[in-house]
Nucleic acid binder design. Structure first.
Length: 285
DNA sequence: TTGTGTTTTATTGCCTCC
DNA sequence: GGAGGCAATAAAACACAA
């Protein structure tokens, strides 16, 4: 905000080759809101507190030669300036800033409703001593500024949300890796244990009991501690390792309906082996 | 005083709605 | 087709540092 403006009565900047009158007008035009209005700023009798004489661009020439005579009477008395006056009014039209009070009034009006119906426009223009077009332009520009501010706010909000999500995502990734490692370790342990058991039973036997189809309630599939929730398998498609680990048809627990239990003796000790290990059963028979 | 950056006022051209 | 809105832009007004 280096260009931020603090307008005050003491501002004697004469930009653009201002003559005495324009300097006077400038100091007049933008009174500090904390200071009393300059005595030259004379309200019209019967007008609202926000009726202004305005600046050159604010008042029409008719206003100047009509209702606003009091302002120029003051000037004439002080400056003896008929020639200056002529010179001033023959200058090409320049931009004039609205007074602090005009802007405040417009701001309040904008807060109430940021769109301007024709009636309101003329009413405001009348109240402020501006051209209706000026009021319309002010609202137009004000809406543009509001939109810019709003965009900045929205951007900040989105940025904050993004950062939060990013942090959450990072934490979830870490947690996922941790759980993955845990699953690997436990799976390895289990596989090793099952292998040891089956090797022992293999040495001892010839299977003494005919193979039995597991009953539903005792199904190893339903009792296997690391079997994933079937409804959940699509949620982590990135996790190929986990998918491979938990693929019931290819690893550890072949689907019951996919296997012929009458053929190789799928004894209870067969569950928990990879399908490739079916060779083991063939050789055992 | 001057140069530079910011803000405000105003214009222009295009678009939409009635 | 005219009115009004919006985006882009020009230009004046202003603040401030050097």
């Amino acid at each position: 905000m280096a260009g931020g403006r603090v307008v005050s009565c003491n501002n004697t900047n004469s930009v653009g080759g201002s003559n005495n009158l324009s300097v006077l007008l400038q100091s007049q035009r933008v009174p500090s809101s904390s200071e009393p209005m300059d005595p030259l700023f004379i309200p019209r009798p019967g007008s609202s507190p926000y009726s202004f004489f305005g600046t050159r661009s604010m008042v029409s020439f008719e206003d100047v030669h009509g209702g606003n005579r009091s302002f120029f009477r003051s000037f004439d008395e002080e400056e003896n300036g008929d020639e200056d006056l002529d010179e001033y009014f023959h200058q090409p039209e320049k931009k004039r800033r609205l007074t602090v009070d005009q802007v405040q009034f417009l701001e309040k009006s904008f807060e109430v409703e940021n769109k301007l119906e024709p009636e309101r426009k003329t009413q405001l223009a009348k109240e402020l001593g501006l051209q209706p077009r000026q009021v319309a332009i002010w609202f137009q520009n004000r809406r543009a500024r509001w939109k810019t501010k709003q965009l900045e706010k929205d951007y900040d909000t989105l940025q904050a949300n993004f950062n939060t999500l990013k942090a959450d995502y990072g934490n979830l990734l870490k947690e996922k890796d941790k759980l993955k490692q845990e699953v690997l370790q436990l799976t390895d342990k289990l596989v090793m244990k099952e292998k040891n058991n089956s090797e022992l039973s293999d040495v001892n036997t010839v299977c003494q009991e005919p193979p039995q189809k597991p009953v539903d309630s005792d199904s190893p599939r339903s009792s296997y501690p690391f079997e994933p929730d079937q409804s959940d398998t699509s949620q982590d498609e990135e996790d190929n390792l986990s998918n491979a680990l938990f693929q019931p048809s290819s690893y550890i627990f072949p689907k019951l309906e996919d296997n012929d239990y009458s053929d190789p003796p799928a004894s209870s000790c067969s569950y928990g082996f990879h399908v490739e290990d079916h060779a083991f059963w063939s050789s055992a028979y």
